[in-house]
């Protein structure tokens, strides 16, 4: 047995839960925290807490935002007939930075990855279909339990449709003409794209994918703005 403190060990244990943090790094971080001034530790602790408590998801597009609906969904300058489907909120930010896109978004919360055990039911795929055809939910409800969203994920039902009349309101919602799949060009992205294309086939909506021109295997997030703009412009049908 070495000289250890249970609290330090507990912290090491927690750090190892973070992605890319191994035991060694976790120990280094824990030792660092041990030496930090009390106030700084408090600041980190409260930042951690508030990211869970204060941040919510837009109940329409599921982007991480401080308000619901998010600024994009509630803006009347955005074209609600085009939905760009992204894996995570960070991809949305990358596309927004191109200043090329005027439509709205849908954040899936990941991609279908059979090797990781992540399937359509773990993502917000059915919510996407319901945005295109609100009657979809009924038919899919028994087949797919609602995926786990943020603590306030129930917000679906009490979203304020008066914002600018888009989505959620069934018949009065702006019809969606095009769904642009902006998933990463890799096996998981392909699987997700084919799955969504197949799911949306019965609806009168054009499904396109931007991946063309993007380097395969590279992360959308790391693509430069010019490349991303070109990819958005040159989007094509999913075959």
């Amino acid at each position: 047995m070495q000289y250890t403190s249970e609290s330090v060990e507990a912290l090491v244990e927690q750090f190892t839960k973070l992605p890319t943090i191994g035991k060694k790094t976790a120990r280094r971080l824990a030792n660092y925290v041990l030496k930090m001034p009390q106030e700084e530790v408090e600041t980190i602790a409260s930042a951690l807490r508030s990211v869970k408590e204060d941040v919510q998801r837009c109940s329409t597009c599921y982007v991480v935002a401080d308000q619901d609906p998010c600024p994009i969904c509630s803006s009347d300058k955005r074209d609600a007939s085009t939905i760009c489907v992204v894996e995570e909120s960070s991809d949305l930010i990358a596309i927004e930075q191109t200043n090329e896109y005027r439509g709205v978004y849908h954040v899936l919360g990941g991609v279908i990855s059979p090797l990781d055990g992540v399937g359509p039911d773990d993502l917000r795929v059915h919510e996407l279909a319901a945005r295109i055809d609100p009657s979809f939910e009924d038919t899919a409800a028994d087949a797919a339990p609602a995926p786990e969203t943020m603590p306030d994920g129930e917000a679906d039902d009490d979203a304020d449709p008066s914002e600018n009349g888009q989505v959620q309101e069934g018949e009065t919602a702006a019809p969606v003409d095009e769904v642009i799949l902006a998933v990463n060009p890799n096996v998981e992205g392909d699987t997700t794209a084919y799955y969504i294309t197949q799911l949306l086939e019965p609806f009168d909506v054009r499904v396109t994918r931007i991946a063309r021109g993007l380097p395969i295997g590279g992360d959308l997030e790391y693509a430069d703005e010019a490349t991303l703009s070109r990819a958005l412009e040159g989007r094509g049908h999913v075959d």
Partner: peptide, 10 residues
Amino acid sequence: SVIAQIERAG
């Protein structure tokens, strides 16, 4: 189970 989900909707 993931592939079963994919096929179910397929």
